[in-house]
Computed example of a mutant assay.
Amino acid sequence: MRNIQVIDGADNAMYDIFAATEDEFALIFPAGQDVAFIDEVIARTPVAALDHAFAAIWQRRVAKAEAKGIHGILFYEMPQKKQYYPTRRDEAAINPDGTRLR
Rank of each mutant, 00 (worst) to 15 (best):
V6G: 03
Q83W: 02
A65R: 05
D97L: 05
H71K: 02
A36C: 11
D8N: 15
A63S: 15
Q5R: 10
E24W: 11
G32H: 02
T87C: 06
G69D: 09
F18V: 02
T45D: 09
A49H: 08
F29P: 03
A13H: 11
R88D: 05
P79M: 05
G98E: 01
R2C: 07
A93I: 04
I4P: 06
R60N: 15
F54G: 07
A65V: 03
R61A: 09
I73Q: 00
N95I: 05
P86R: 02
D34I: 04
M78C: 14
G9V: 05
D51A: 13
P79D: 01
V47L: 15
A49W: 04
K68Q: 15
D39R: 07
V47T: 15
A19L: 08
T45P: 05
N95F: 14
R88V: 00
K68H: 13
P86L: 08
Q80K: 14
P46H: 08
A63I: 04
A67G: 03
V6Q: 00
D16Y: 08
R44G: 04
I4N: 03
D8R: 03
R88W: 09
G98F: 00
A10Y: 04
A56N: 15
V35E: 03
A49E: 14
F18K: 01
K68A: 15
A13V: 12
I28D: 01
I17Y: 00
Q80C: 10
R89W: 04
E77L: 13
A67Q: 07
N95A: 14
R2F: 12
P96Y: 12
R60D: 11
G98H: 02
K82T: 06
I17F: 00
A19C: 04
D8K: 04
M78W: 08
A13I: 09
K81P: 01
G9C: 05
D11E: 14
A43K: 10
P79K: 03
K68T: 15
M78H: 10
F29E: 03
I38P: 11
V41Y: 03
K68I: 12
N3Y: 11
G98W: 00
T21H: 03
Q5F: 00
A93K: 12
N3W: 01
D11M: 11
Y15H: 15
W58Q: 10
E77R: 14
D23H: 11
A20E: 02
A19W: 07
L74S: 05
D34C: 02
T99F: 05
I38H: 14
P30V: 12
R88F: 11
P79Q: 06
N12S: 12
A53Y: 08
A63H: 14
A31S: 09
